[in-house]
Design a protein around this nucleic acid. Structure first.
Lengths: 292, 292
DNA sequence: TTGTAAGCGTTATCAC
DNA sequence: GTGATAACGCTTACAA
């Protein structure tokens, strides 16, 4: 009958009347990185179950942009808010507090969340990874990272690396640290420079995308992995297992993080008391043949 | 003042009153594939300019799901609708027609669009690619594709391949055709089977992700690319240029397609008459060393 | 049980 | 101009 008459309910009116929508707003640095795309997939699938929709904006790795976007998104009266990381402007935090809806911060859990958070400790992940490398006999350990600004996850990872190195009293040359944008080209450049200028480096800690570029760049230059240079990624992209050699990396459950975030929001909306404000989904060190 | 009092306008009320929102609804097969993530990035960026937001749902490559989702999304009174491909259920098409808002179909342009479309001819792309392969002396040309159901883009690509083969009077064995889900693992499996069972195949036409898996699988088995088996991708993912050998592929401007779609919608909302209902952004054959 | 009216926050209309 | 008022479509509370 409804489909015959072509009647379409108006959720704007419903939302206005009920003072509650079925829209969850998510702000991510970019939609185009597999890590965020996967998180959003999980989030979308979880929300779907209770007929909630996902409104997505990208901040382009800019906290001021995140703040502006949040202000505009709040006008949509979202039923919940999802952000990446735990680093936000004070204004952002204030708005989140006043919003009066569930807020979930994803992919980092080292700070007390504004409301709730789902993720893992980037610090612990790379701290453990670095300790594992040291235990395997590596001494000269380099670090190639995405830009630090507006990216607390990378900053925490670097802190984990630095602390593990300091504890083991290992030196770290400034030249062993590189910043590379999130692209294969940038990765190839950074690895190329490192290989040329610092062949004393035995292993590089970085993220999966840059690590893949690194392995390919090593192949190009005849640098043997892991004998001449070992490489560790971070994320566990599917391709890493198929490379030659397969990549040592840190597995993080991206889809699951998104899914849990959606569930937390739905539970809260259903009136459930939140058992815990922080969900640590952990990480897993995957030792493969790109390290000895 | 506004930021001091904490006033947040209510876009639900505004939308109800004006009978018009700033929300554009997009239904994609999945958010987790680079092709759709990139399209959504471009779309989001374009909409941003006029303060429009993106409501994203994934159909999971199911046209009935797309239909259901569309029905629910229309209740949000979107200012515009974006879909992938030109293959929809009759119900979907009816709803789109009655929606009374701009509709853009993306990534395929061979049919008359419901309203507007932005993309390229998948048929022409693979037709030209296959003719190029034939011109390079290849005769036994295999095809590894994603599942055909609910994916008119892949069906059109296959038609382009089949027509080029038929025109050249080249045989195509059923065993030369494989279906592989969109994952490296599936790609490795499909290529592995093809290498084992049909070593008469000289070149494989597929998509980038499967092609990457194929090149890696060939490396694993000591199959030389392109001498023993040549491989062509489709999409031009960044990594394809860095592989050994670099991958021959079809470049499609994913971000640009999304951006143009956003612009079309905004222009239409601003009252502009649409100059053309179909925008062909074209494609580009990128001949690299994975083919001779 | 069925029906009617008030209210949600904004825009638009129409007096003044 | 400025300011009151109806209207948008739905929910809910209350009256019949």
């Amino acid at each position: 009958m409804i489909e015959r008459t072509g009647y379409v309910p108006n959720l704007l009116a419903k939302g206005l009347s009920e003072n509650r929508t079925n829209i969850v707003a998510a702000i991510v640095p970019t939609i185009s990185h597999s890590i965020f795309a996967d998180v959003l997939s999980g989030l979308s699938d979880a929300l779907e179950v209770r007929n909630h929709r996902l409104l997505i904006s990208n901040s382009g790795y800019c906290l001021e942009r995140e703040e502006t976007l949040l202000g505009e998104l709040l006008a949509q009266r979202p039923a919940g808010i999802v952000l990446i990381g735990q680093d936000h402007t004070q204004q952002t935090v204030d708005m989140l507090r006043r919003a009066g809806v569930p807020v979930v911060e994803l992919l980092e859990i080292d700070k007390q969340p504004v409301d709730m958070c789902v993720g893992f400790s980037n610090y612990q992940a790379v701290y453990q990874l670095t300790r594992g490398l040291i235990a395997r006999g590596y001494r000269n350990i380099g670090f190639i990272a995405a830009p630090f600004e507006a990216n607390d996850r990378v900053r925490r990872r670097h802190a984990g690396y630095a602390d593990a190195m300091a504890e083991a009293k290992l030196r770290t040359e400034p030249g062993w640290h590189r910043v590379a944008g999130f692209s294969y080209k940038e990765g190839a450049r950074a690895f190329g420079e490192l290989i040329r200028e610092h062949d004393e480096v035995e292993v590089v800690v970085t993220n999966d995308l840059l690590a893949v570029a690194g392995i390919l760049e090593c192949q190009r230059h005849g640098v043997r992995v892991p004998d001449d240079l070992a490489i560790c990624g971070f994320e566990d992209m599917e391709i890493t297992a198929m490379l030659h050699p397969p990549l040592t990396t840190v597995r993080i459950r991206r889809y699951e993080i998104g899914r849990l975030a959606g569930q937390l929001i739905l539970d809260r909306l259903a009136g459930a008391e939140t058992a815990q404000d922080t969900i640590d989904v952990g990480f897993e060190l995957i030792w493969r043949q790109s390290t000895r």
